[in-house]
Computed example of a mutant assay.
Amino acid sequence: MTTTLADEFETQRPRLFSLAYRLLGSAEEAEDAVQDAYLRFSGADRTGIEHPAAWLAKVVTNLCLNRLTSARARRERYVGTWLPEPVVTADGALGPLESAEQRDAVSMAMLVLLERLTPTERAVYVLREAFGYGHREIAGVLDLSEANCRQLYRRAVQRVGEPQARFEPASEQQEELVTSFITAARDGDLAGLEKLLAADATWWSDGGGKVTAARWPIEGGPRVAQFLAGGGPKFAAGLEFTVTEVNGATGLASWAGDTLVGLAAFEVRDGLVVGVRAVVNPEKLAFARRQLTRP
């Protein structure tokens, strides 16, 4: 059976999307970058492509580097807290997440940390940590010297910290915790929320100026509990909630009828919620809407 160019590309698409998403923090832009790579692949002289997977990884990486420069300028003008576009990962959309380290690599927390890096530092870090590229391979992708790539990697690690599993992986116990959390918030149960939140818990919400959301992080378990107990019943009125996996973590999907109106990723440590990143900007939910169907 003859393998067509399109078939060959499709075998690479999941990996290329995962790479582009880690580089951009945007699922929609990652899809666009992968599609642009396909157009270049289909129009290229195939005799000059000895290793299609490596060739495509280089093309996608450089397409993302071009996009990152303009994305950074847009984020400087962003209204309120900026968070990455959430991705539902239970179906393997970002590749296998079998270890705590793999889950941490696609977490909302890590993607926010990667915003500290220059575009080239981010590319070096992602290729090294998420895809296991050696410094020589990275140098080939970015057209840099191997020594320069090593230096960029060291600088990136200094800015985001050593790779590690920062939070507990998703589990049935976490699903129960998240269910209890949203029940307490819906009921305005301040005491119940305080029992579920760590003392140093933080709440981030991204509305992008499109919908009502806290514009700045709310820090400290008691303050988060007060914020949710005060506004939770009003916010939750008419909504339904389902537990799902968001960026490798236990998450919550909010529904208004058949419309997805929010996705939140929970960070849990020692059985308590230490962080919640909630995306309610409708423009950032388009990809997840296509992933999910209303239960």
Rank of each mutant, 00 (worst) to 15 (best):
Y21G: 00
G207I: 03
G231A: 15
V276L: 13
I218A: 08
S180R: 11
L177N: 06
R116D: 02
E137I: 08
L263M: 09
T47N: 01
G251L: 02
T89I: 11
Q102L: 15
Q164I: 14
M1A: 12
Y78S: 01
E194C: 12
F241V: 02
G208C: 05
R22L: 08
L117M: 06
A57S: 13
E115D: 10
T69L: 14
T69V: 15
G262V: 07
P96H: 14
A256E: 11
V79M: 02
G25P: 02
V178M: 01
R269M: 11
R74T: 03
T2F: 12
A286F: 02
T11K: 12
D45I: 00
S171M: 05
Q158M: 13
R186T: 15
V280I: 06
L113A: 11
E176M: 12
A198K: 07
I49R: 01
M110C: 11
L127D: 08
A147W: 01
D7Y: 10
G257D: 06
D32A: 09
S180M: 13
A105K: 08
A156E: 04
G221I: 06
T120H: 04
T259F: 08
T69E: 14
T212Y: 12
M108L: 12
T259A: 15
G192Y: 11
E8H: 05
A278H: 14
P84T: 01
V124A: 07
N148M: 11
C64Y: 00
S99C: 10
Q12R: 12
A100P: 13
L197K: 09
V243D: 09
Y153E: 06
D187H: 14
A286P: 02
P217S: 06
T202F: 10
A286Q: 07
Q164G: 13
L113F: 08
P282R: 00
T259V: 15
W204F: 14
G95N: 14
T120A: 08
R155I: 04
V178S: 02
P119S: 03
R290T: 13
F235M: 09
A30K: 02
A265T: 04
S107F: 05
L5D: 07
V59L: 03
H135Y: 14
W55V: 04
Q158N: 15
F235R: 09
G161E: 10
K195A: 14
A288T: 01
L263I: 02
E194W: 11
L239I: 05
L111E: 03
T183C: 12
A57N: 15
V246R: 04
P119C: 03
G161M: 05
L292Y: 04
R155C: 08
A156T: 03
V106D: 04
R67H: 10
V243E: 09
R13P: 05
D45K: 01
S205M: 13
L114I: 00
R67M: 06
A170V: 10
D91C: 15
L272V: 12
T183M: 12
N148T: 14
E146I: 03
A37I: 02
G262D: 11
R40T: 03
A265R: 04
G25C: 03
V224Q: 10
